[in-house]
Design a binder for these strands. Structure first.
Lengths: 136, 136
DNA sequence: CGGGATCCTTCACGATACTG
DNA sequence: CAGTATCGTGAAGGATCCCG
């Protein structure tokens, strides 16, 4: 996980201020895409790229998500600069979302992970069933 | 997220039993590697592959992890078949862990994710700081 | 040495209701 | 339409102590 933290960052002399995993980039990334709806949202937006989707269209594309979670997920993504938000000042307002270049670049490693998952999760499921039986 | 669930699995007639995201492989994978110590553990074991590491050696390789979490993480990985556990019946016992082939195969997409994180997380951090300032 | 058992806190997420 | 506000819950994870 990037056993980083060697360079720079002179810490207060008497303290070992660099506790445990300070700000490991991989940890931070996993905290984001590990969240329940984030990677799903990125995927749906990626399929539309470079086009946009409106809030309700996104909701339809992500079965099971609540308004609250879609709203929160999108806010995170916008803050991170992975998604761009565009508001048309009509009444009622129309809000459009699209992946930024940064967001789109995440799709590559993410889809690699999806491929691995689709290929190997069945085997993992079998392993778990075997383990469950053996424990009897 | 593999909008799977189309084939097979005839659900109880009167019910729409196939609620939302039933068993999406990507969701399942993210639930595993998104857990706080899993990917770190895989990485440390991968660096040693095809060699083994003992419980305490692993602990040293993963600063900040508690005995409880290392134990729990390893049990998950063993159940999933990503890690193999070998006990030497000495006193006190010596337990060795290594990645299986399956576990090793996960390292490829995982390291792609790490590269992306190391490359782009600084930019995401900057985006967040900008957003924080703007909100003032 | 390599764990297991317990207790406790935090927080992601779901359900529901309200609004410009 | 596109959110925000509030409440409640389960599960992840940390701290601590004990065991063969």
């Amino acid at each position: 996980m990037t056993t980083s933290m060697p360079a720079g960052r002179d810490q207060p002399p008497g303290e070992r201020g660099d506790l445990l995993d300070p700000r490991c980039p991989t940890r931070q990334l996993l905290d984001r895409i590990g969240t329940k709806w984030t990677s799903m949202t990125v995927k749906v937006l990626a399929e539309e790229a470079p086009g946009e989707l409106r809030f309700t269209e996104l909701r339809r594309g992500i079965p099971g998500i609540s308004q609250k979670m879609l709203s929160a997920t999108l806010q995170s993504l916008v803050r991170d600069g992975l998604v761009a938000r565009r508001v048309e000042p009509t009444v009622p307002p129309a809000v459009h979302y699209r992946l930024t270049e940064l967001g789109l670049s995440l799709e590559t490693p993410l889809s690699a992970l999806r491929v691995w998952a689709e290929t190997h999760m069945p085997e993992i499921d079998r392993n778990n069933q075997l383990a469950a039986e053996t424990s009897n």
